[in-house]
């Protein structure tokens, strides 16, 4: 058969927009946008389920009694900031500046982990107050929606973490750059979902 194609991508040749430079990377980015479209509908269905069941507390604490706005606000600011840092990382790719890329994506991972920690703490608090996954339809719907978002955050930080390892091993090239770009798209999407969660779940839960 034929010889394996050698990989020649080096930093020096990185085009200004690696995510659009090859057919492969264009496919990757477009395909990922479609995945985001599909995930939007998935989350919308979980939101709908939550909205339909949020008043079925079966004697457990109601949304108004349960939610702690200061903690949610803190989590929101952490996640919003991480969205900014990941875009700064992408700017680093466009400048072909590996140091900037590494720095900002590491900050993103740390912020993501902080958010996740807050969320886990929050869940512990709620379970303590008798609001569990099986206590009522409200509980099931709440943990499914927020938990699915949480698992996306977890997947996101793991993913970016892996890419950072690849980055330090192989440098910024035509293979790693589009991957990081796509990962940052994912991260923004996770952020967008959270915008709706804090609005629809927490703030609307306080309005009643």
């Amino acid at each position: 058969m034929s010889a394996q194609v050698e990989h020649k991508g080096t930093q020096a040749h990185l085009p200004p927009h690696p995510e659009k430079a090859t057919m492969e990377s264009r496919n990757k980015v477009l395909g990922f946008w479609f995945l985001i479209g599909a995930e939007t509908v998935l989350f919308a269905c979980l939101f709908g389920t939550y909205l339909a069941l949020k008043d079925s507390t079966m004697g457990g604490p109601s949304t108004e009694e349960l939610y702690q706005i200061p903690m949610v606000a803190l989590a929101t600011f952490i996640l919003l900031t991480s969205s900014l840092t990941s875009v700064l990382g992408v700017l680093g790719i466009h400048r072909n500046n590996i140091k900037q890329v590494k720095l900002w994506f590491w900050v993103t991972v740390v912020l993501g982990a902080a958010f996740l920690g807050l969320e886990i703490y929050e869940f512990f608090e709620y379970v303590h107050e008798g609001h569990t996954f099986t206590s009522s339809a409200f509980g099931s719907a709440f943990y499914t929606l927020v938990g699915t978002h949480g698992s996306h955050v977890l997947f996101g930080i793991t993913w970016i973490f892996c890419l950072l390892i690849q980055l330090s091993r192989r440098g910024l090239n035509m293979e790693t750059a589009p991957k990081l770009y796509v990962a940052s798209l994912y991260w923004h999407f996770v952020d967008v979902v959270w915008v709706f969660i804090f609005t629809v779940v927490y703030l609307m839960g306080k309005v009643g």
């Binding site: 946008w33 919308a44 389920t49 909205l51």
Partner: peptide
């Protein structure tokens, strides 16, 4: 530059909104 992408993302948002509202109102 990304007309197709924008179309599909908007479709996702519209269909998502319909799903969420329908489940809320009819569910």
């Amino acid at each position: 530059n990304n007309r197709m992408t924008v179309t599909f993302v908007m479709m996702g948002l519209i269909i998502g909104a319909i799903c969420a509202v329908a489940l809320f109102v009819l569910g």
